[in-house]
Design a protein around this nucleic acid. Structure first.
Length: 499
RNA sequence: GGCGAGUUGGCGGAGUGGUGACGCAGCGGAUUGCAAAUCCGUGUACAGGAGUUCGAUUCUCCUACUCGCCUCCA
C-alpha cells in the first residue's frame, strides 16, 4: 500500500495518512457559496482536492473513499438576487426564487468544474437540507453549556472551549488585541460567534426553538460532516482563507458537541490564486470566472480548454500561491497538444482506456507519478515524470524505441495524465472537433513544392506558405510530406481568399 | 497591532546537509530550397547577515522585502 503523506495545518508537519477505519478514507471539503458563477480562484481547491480524491481512490479503491463537499445555499447575496428578481416581477415566493437562484448556480458550478476535470464528490449536501441537524446540534451545544440564546440569537461561548485557536495558532487574547471582532449587545463576549440568527419577513427562515431564523455560517459544515461522516473523519480541506475563523469555529462546535470523536485528523489548506502576479479582485479589473476562461479566455483562442486550466493549476504545489498567467496557459496548451497527438492515433489503446479508465490507471501508471502525488500532492513532480515520458515519444526520439516500448510509454502517459485528472483522448477529440481541416492546403503546397523542386523557383511555394503563416497556421515541410495545422492564433477567415 | 506563509538561474517552478530537477525562452550545431518542427549540445540560481558543520541553497537565529488571514472572499 502506498503511503500518503500530507501537510497537516494543525501540526504544521507532513504526516502519514492513517485512516481511522482501516481501508476506508473520509474527506470533507468546504464547498462554494452558490450565489454566482465560480471565479477562477474557486477552482483551485476543487482541482487540488480532486487530485487527492483520485489518488485516494487509486490507493484505497474506488468504493473506499467518501468525499463530501457542501453547497452553502444560505447567503445574503443569494437573497439579494432573489429579492431583485421578485421586485422585477418574477413569479413565485421569495423562497422559490432563492431556491431557483441556488439551483442555477449549482448547475453552473457543476458544468464549470466538470470542464476542469473534477470528479463529483460522493455527497454534495446543501445547507438548506440539513437545517434540522443544525438545530439539533445547536440545542445540544446549549444543553452542554457551550452556547446560549439571547434576543433570538444563539451564540457560541468561545471562552468555554479551552483549545480554541489551536488550528490558526492564535490565542483569544491575540484576537481581542486585534479588536476586529464584532461587538453586539446580544453577545456575552465579543469573541462569541453566531450559531443561529433571527430572520425578518424578507429573508428565508426556518422554525427553531429560538424563533424563525437561519443558521450561522460555520454550523452547517459541522452538522453536515457529522451527518455524513460521523464524529471522526480523516481529512478536512479548504482554502487557507477559511482557516480562521471558519475552520477554527467548526472545530470548536464539533468538538464540544461530540467530545467522544476526534473530528478531522488532517487539515489541508490550499494557498490562494493570483492573476499575473496580483490578487484577483474586481477593483483591479483582473477578475474573471472559470466560464469566462472556458468560453473566451486567451485572445486568439476559441476559449481555454478545461484541461489546460487544470494543467496550469497542477504546475504549482497546492501550498504555494499560484499565479494564473496567460504565458503559462499557452505553454500548458502546447504540452497537452503534443501529448494528445502522441497517443491519438493508437485507437486500440484508446478503446482499452475507455473500457475502464480506473483499471487502466491501476495497470499502467508509472509508480513515480503515484509516489510524487503521495508525497504531499507534489503535482509538479508528477508532471515532470510525465513530461519525460512525453519527450520520449516526440519526433526522432521515438525511433529509438521498439513498437512495444512506444506503447508502454503511451500507456504510462495516458494513465499518469488520467490519475491527475487529464483525459488525453477526451482532450484530443475536443481539440480536433474545434479545429479546422487544412489538408487541402497541405496537398496544394505539396504539389507546388514538388514542381518547385524541379524548377528551382520557390516563389509560388513561399507565397502560399506566407499566407498560411499570416493566418496563424503552422507549416511543417519534411521529406516525408507537408503538414498544415492551426497554430495558437489561427484565424480561418484569413484563408478565405486563398480558396 | 496579532497570526501565518513565502523570497531558487531571463521567466516559471521542484528539491536536497556534499555530482546545477524540470519546463519555457536564449545561445551553438545538425537538418531544411528558406523556414517551422525535430534532434544534439549549452546555464558560475538558491534575498542579506551571523551561527552550527569537514561542508548549507538545504538546519538555527537575526534583518529586509513580498503576500495572505484577523471583514461569511476558496
Amino acid at each position: 500500500m502506498v503511503e500518503i503523506r500530507l501537510t497537516n495545518s494543525m501540526t504544521r508537519k507532513k504526516e502519514t495518512l492513517v485512516p481511522i477505519r482501516p481501508g476506508q478514507v473520509s474527506m470533507y471539503v468546504c464547498g462554494p457559496t452558490v450565489y454566482d458563477r465560480a471565479h477562477l480562484g474557486n477552482a483551485r481547491p476543487v482541482v487540488v482536492f480532486d487530485v487527492l480524491f483520485r489518488l485516494l481512490r487509486h490507493v484505497y479503491g474506488e468504493d473506499a473513499v467518501t468525499y463530501v463537499r457542501n453547497f452553502t445555499d444560505v447567503d445574503d447575496r443569494i437573497n439579494e438576487t432573489a429579492q431583485k428578481r421578485k421586485a422585477a416581477g418574477a413569479t413565485g415566493t421569495l423562497e422559490d426564487l432563492i431556491r431557483e437562484r441556488s439551483d442555477e448556480t449549482i448547475r453552473w458550478y457543476h458544468d464549470d468544474m466538470d470542464a476542469v476535470g473534477a470528479l463529483r464528490p460522493t455527497h454534495e449536501p446543501r445547507a438548506t437540507e440539513y437545517i434540522p441537524q443544525m438545530v439539533a446540534m445547536i440545542e445540544d451545544l446549549i444543553a452542554k453549556g457551550f452556547a446560549y440564546e439571547n434576543e433570538g440569537h444563539v451564540l457560541f461561548r468561545v471562552r468555554r472551549y479551552a483549545e480554541y485557536g489551536q488550528l490558526s495558532g492564535r490565542s483569544v487574547e491575540d484576537m481581542i488585541a486585534g479588536a476586529r471582532v464584532e461587538v453586539a449587545p446580544y453577545k456575552e463576549d465579543p469573541m462569541d460567534f453566531v450559531l443561529w440568527k433571527p430572520s425578518d419577513d424578507d429573508l428565508p427562515g426556518w422554525p427553531s426553538p429560538w424563533g424563525r431564523g437561519r443558521p450561522g455560517w460555520h454550523i452547517e459544515c459541522s452538522a453536515m460532516s457529522y451527518a455524513l461522516l460521523g464524529d471522526s473523519f480523516d481529512i478536512h480541506g479548504g482554502g487557507n482563507d477559511l482557516l480562521f475563523p471558519h475552520h477554527e469555529n467548526e472545530i470548536a462546535q464539533s468538538c464540544c458537541a461530540h467530545p467522544e470523536g476526534s473530528f478531522a485528523s488532517i487539515w489541508l489548506h490550499n494557498e490562494m490564486l493570483q492573476v499575473e502576479g496580483k490578487k484577483m479582485s474586481k477593483s483591479l479589473g483582473n477578475f474573471f470566472t472559470v466560464r469566462d476562461l472556458l468560453d473566451k479566455g486567451v485572445p486568439g483562442w476559441n476559449g481555454v480548454p478545461g484541461d489546460v486550466i487544470r494543467y496550469v493549476f497542477l504546475l504549482t504545489h497546492y501550498r504555494k500561491p499560484m499565479d494564473w498567467r496567460q504565458a503559462t496557459a499557452i505553454t500548458a496548451k502546447q504540452r497537452l497538444d503534443i501529448w494528445s497527438s502522441e497517443v491519438q492515433s493508437n485507437r486500440e489503446l484508446e478503446r482499452e482506456f475507455k473500457q475502464d479508465r480506473d483499471e487502466f490507471v491501476r495497470n499502467y501508471v508509472d509508480p513515480t507519478v503515484v509516489e510524487a502525488l503521495a508525497d504531499d500532492l507534489n503535482t509538479s513532480n508528477a508532471l515532470t515524470t510525465l513530461i519525460a515520458a512525453g519527450k520520449k515519444l516526440e519526433g526522432l526520439s521515438r525511433v529509438q524505441f521498439t513498437d512495444d516500448e512506444v506503447e508502454t510509454i503511451q500507456r504510462q502517459l495516458v494513465a499518469g495524465c488520467y490519475l491527475i485528472g487529464i483525459d488525453l483522448y477526451h482532450y484530443a477529440n475536443a481539440i480536433s472537433r474545434g479545429s479546422f481541416n487544412l489538408s487541402d492546403f497541405a496537398s496544394k503546397l505539396t504539389a507546388l513544392r514538388e514542381t518547385a523542386m524541379q524548377t528551382k523557383d520557390f516563389s509560388a511555394v513561399d507565397a502560399l506558405k506566407s499566407s498560411l503563416l499570416a493566418a496563424g497556421a503552422e507549416v511543417r515541410m519534411t521529406k516525408a510530406g507537408v503538414e498544415v495545422i492551426p497554430g495558437p492564433n489561427f484565424d480561418p477567415a484569413k484563408l478565405e481568399p486563398l480558396k
